[in-house]
Amino acid sequence: MLRCLVQDHPKQWEEVLGKAEFAFNAMPNRSTGKAPFTIVYTKAPNLAVDIIVLLNCKSGSAATFKDNYSKLLSDVRQQIIRSNQWYKAAVDIHRRPCSFQVGDLVMVHLRRERFLPGAYSKLAKRKIGPVPIIAKFNDNAYSVELPPGCNTSSTFNVTDIWPYNSTDDAPITLSSSESSSSEAGED
């Protein structure tokens, strides 16, 4: 908005900041359907001509004002609820519902953000597994049994967990790191 107002004089942005703020507060918001001025001050902003008109306060008008303001707040509340439902529906299209139980085998996605700087190689495996789920905190957070080489938290968001689907019908056995290292030493 400031770029449009200053046009060829970008260093004069401070001079138009008040106009930009007034214009923003006077425009209806997409979520509420009302202008911020209307919500806060219960009426549209006064222009230079309207400032000289003074509102007479009487008990009848005070009651009307209270009713109008209550209705305005109710309308704004309903508009916000409708907007939130619309946004939720738009996001839910891309959401995949997943629910796991303790003991289920899953694949886990390891994001770079989970590791200390310099500890994550861009050539490292992105998914590890199958690993069993050892705890369910809620439908959104699970704890898995990570291999000993992973230096990260074992709690994952459901968006980073996929069910493990074996390519064959052979039973899957998971061994602990101690038994696999002792077996390797016996050879």
Rank of each mutant, 00 (worst) to 15 (best):
E113L: 06
T155G: 14
L146K: 02
I161M: 11
R96M: 05
N165E: 13
C150G: 04
L146T: 00
E113M: 13
Y69F: 13
F65S: 00
I128L: 13
N46Q: 07
G149K: 09
P36T: 01
A89N: 14
N56Y: 04
K122T: 13
A119I: 14
T64H: 01
N140Y: 14
P132T: 07
A48W: 13
P117G: 02
G33M: 12
S70H: 07
K11R: 13
S143V: 01
W13E: 09
R96Y: 09
D8F: 11
T42G: 00
D8T: 06
A44E: 14
H109F: 15
K71G: 03
D187I: 05
T32K: 11
A119P: 00
S99E: 11
S182I: 11
S175L: 12
K19N: 15
K127R: 05
L55I: 14
S181Y: 05
K19A: 06
A135H: 14
S143E: 15
T152S: 08
T173Q: 14
S153D: 15
N25V: 00
S180D: 13
K122L: 10
T167H: 11
V40I: 15
S182C: 13
F37E: 03
P28S: 10
G129V: 06
S175V: 12
E178L: 15
F22S: 10
P171M: 01
T167C: 02
E113F: 04
D67S: 09
T42Q: 02
S177T: 14
K43E: 13
H94L: 05
L2W: 07
F115D: 04
F37A: 03
I161C: 11
L5E: 05
Q79C: 11
N138E: 06
G103I: 06
I172R: 03
N56M: 04
F115K: 05
L174A: 02
R77T: 06
D104F: 01
I134T: 13
G18L: 03
A89G: 10
N68W: 05
D139R: 05
S166Q: 07
S176I: 13
S153G: 14
A124T: 06
A26F: 07
S154C: 14
M27N: 10
I134G: 04
P163E: 13
P148L: 07
I51K: 10
R95W: 10
S181E: 11
N25F: 08
W162A: 08
E113A: 14
A35R: 05
I80N: 07
F65D: 03
S182M: 10
H109W: 14
S166I: 02
C57H: 08
I134S: 10
Q78A: 12
D8I: 03
A184N: 07
T152H: 09
K127Y: 12
V131N: 06
V131K: 01
L55W: 04
T155C: 15
A23F: 03
S74N: 09
P163D: 03
L17R: 15
P28Q: 11
H94I: 08
L110Y: 11
F65I: 10
D50K: 11
L105E: 05
W86C: 07
D50P: 03
L5G: 04
S175W: 11
R82G: 01
R95K: 09
Q12K: 09
S83P: 00
C57V: 15
E21N: 13
A135T: 12
G103M: 01
K19D: 12
V76F: 09
E145H: 10
D67H: 04
D75G: 12
N29I: 00
K66V: 10
E15I: 11
L5P: 09
